[in-house]
């Protein structure tokens, strides 16, 4: 699939679906906050929809609890390609404070392996850290995901002297 072409087609009208995999609500409330008058992302054509089948982008929050795992996989399967994911908050990114408990699987990186096993391909993921994530960061994250803004953080390899 031509990802660049697909991204170009949706960049002025982005339908987002909010998927909470067991988060504490703080990131979820900030997602809502971004939609309401102070930040008002609807002016950019971003709109929250009620089904993953309608979604261009999934806003993913939470550390993926054991109970929610099968439902999360089913919801992501239902999403049309390209599957674009914006993973929000410390929990989504790496499991947060619950990364190793018995009741969670430990964030999106672990979920990615399960998705691969289940044959669910993800086309692009952008991680937005924060506990909770700020509304400004969510907006910036969407812009990076769609290629409308440059990512400011880069991966740098640092070698210890003599190492």
């Amino acid at each position: 699939m031509d990802l660049a072409k697909a991204l170009k087609a949706i960049r002025r009208s982005i339908w987002v679906y909010h998927l909470n995999s067991g988060s504490c609500n703080a990131c979820d409330i900030e997602v809502l906050d971004a939609l309401t008058p102070y930040f008002d992302v609807e002016r950019f054509g971003i709109k929250l929809v009620g089904s993953p089948r309608h979604a261009d982008v999934v806003l993913f929050t939470g550390p993926v609890t054991r109970e929610s795992l099968p439902k999360v996989v089913r919801a992501l399967k239902a999403m049309p390609r390209p599957r674009l994911l914006l993973v929000l908050g410390s929990c989504g990114v790496g499991g947060g404070i619950w990364w190793d408990t018995y009741a969670t699987i430990g964030g999106f990186s672990k979920l990615e392996e399960i998705l691969r096993e289940q044959g669910v391909e993800v086309d692009r993921v952008v991680y937005v850290p924060g506990c909770p994530v700020r509304p400004e960061a969510i907006i910036y994250g969407i812009l990076v995901l769609l290629g409308l803004a440059e990512q400011k953080v880069r991966e740098v390899e640092v070698h210890a002297p003599g190492g």
């Binding site: 067991g22 504490c24 969670t104």
Partner: peptide, 29 residues
């Protein structure tokens, strides 16, 4: 769906009295 094992986590070696307020705060956003 949101059972994250908080009560157990507080008893785990990862936490002490001083750290639990920050865990408690993440029970609910």
């Amino acid at each position: 769906h949101v059972h994250r094992g908080i009560e157990k986590l507080a008893e785990s070696p990862r936490f002490t009295y001083k750290q639990i307020p920050f865990l408690a705060e993440r029970i609910c956003g």
